[in-house]
């Protein structure tokens, strides 16, 4: 079932997403055949554009075939939006070419940094939540959006370090989004992991986000730190979505309303059919929230 904004009873006035409001799956090469065979009305796909920053070959051909059948979203990991280095011009140019070629319905990035003095760390590193950093992020996101010619969503980070900050994370991100004219991508799994690791209230975090700013939701699985166990969760995307994250998804959908929900899986990749059962559960959560809204 494809849910439209009319059916959901609530449009998102400030952030008109062009993705279908249904559940999607993070596309891995292992899923290409399954993805091509699946009903296009019930699913969309998201990729890291960095994995397609190649000059040619089957990888781009596969992505083109998916794009011809399904809605596609780009979720970048390499921009280093919060970094101090100038934007990598090769990366920006490649991203722009991919956007022009594949016309993704949504483009998102992370409210983090990942390079310093030219070196790329292949990880999403946390930003100090200060007003000065907020100003920096606004300027950087404006430049980034101008360079790629698209409005983006920025994703909340996974936090492993607790602390005392000038701003809490929702306030930090919301102000950035409002001033930079971007939207928010709410990663519910990241909120849950951050809550466990740093002691915040995940429900209060989600309720602090203005619904109209949120354009997409992510869910994924995590693993426990081999040393700290349950006290320190790692955002590995290598396990099924945990029950507390499913519960937080319900909180998020109830507060924000129906949004495209992406299921991410990057490690211990199961058969595509196995992932479809989790996809179906996310789809049901979306249908349930639409049903509740119509009754209300």
């Amino acid at each position: 079932m494809l849910i439209t904004e009319q059916q959901s009873g609530r449009a998102s006035p400030a952030l008109k997403t062009e993705l279908p409001i249904c559940a999607g799956i993070g596309l891995k090469p292992e899923f290409f055949n399954g993805a091509l065979d699946h009903d296009p009305a019930q699913i969309w796909y998201e990729v890291h554009p960095e994995n397609y920053m190649v000059e040619g070959g089957p990888r781009l051909a596969w992505l083109g075939a998916i794009r011809d059948r399904h809605a596609l979203s780009f979720h970048g990991v390499g921009a280093s939006l919060g970094g101090l280095d100038p934007f990598d011009t090769d990366h920006l140019a490649f991203l722009k070419r991919l956007i022009d070629r594949f016309e993704p319905r949504q483009v998102s990035e992370h409210a983090t940094w990942s390079s310093f003095e030219g070196r790329y760390f292949a990880d999403l590193l946390p930003l100090p939540r200060t007003r000065a950093v907020q100003d920096h992020m606004v300027e950087r996101i404006e430049s980034f959006q101008t360079a790629i010619g698209r409005r983006i969503l920025i994703e909340n980070p996974t936090n492993y370090m607790a602390g005392t900050f000038e701003l809490d994370e929702p306030d930090f991100l919301v102000e950035i989004a409002k001033r930079a004219g971007c939207g928010l991508l709410l990663d519910v799994n990241n909120v849950y992991i951050s809550a466990v690791n740093t002691g915040i209230d995940p429900h209060a975090y989600i309720r602090a986000l203005p619904p109209e700013l949120v354009g997409e939701i992510h869910i994924a699985g995590f693993t426990e730190d081999p040393v700290q166990g349950k006290a320190l969760l790692i955002d590995t995307h290598s396990a099924p979505v945990a029950e507390p994250v499913w519960e937080l998804l319900e909180t998020a959908l109830a507060h924000i309303g129906p949004r495209p929900v992406l299921l991410e899986r990057d490690g211990n990749i199961p058969p595509f059919e196995d992932l479809l059962s989790e996809h179906a559960r996310a789809q049901k959560a979306l249908i349930d929230v639409c049903t509740q809204e119509r009754r209300a």
């Binding site: 200060t130 370090m161 602390g163 730190d225 700290q228 320190l232």
Partner: peptide, 16 residues
């Protein structure tokens, strides 16, 4: 000055 407690900073090194 960042407010971060670097107790678990190793997670970022491990992830990278």
């Amino acid at each position: 000055n960042t407010g971060f407690d670097p107790k678990f900073v190793r997670v970022y090194s491990n992830n990278s």
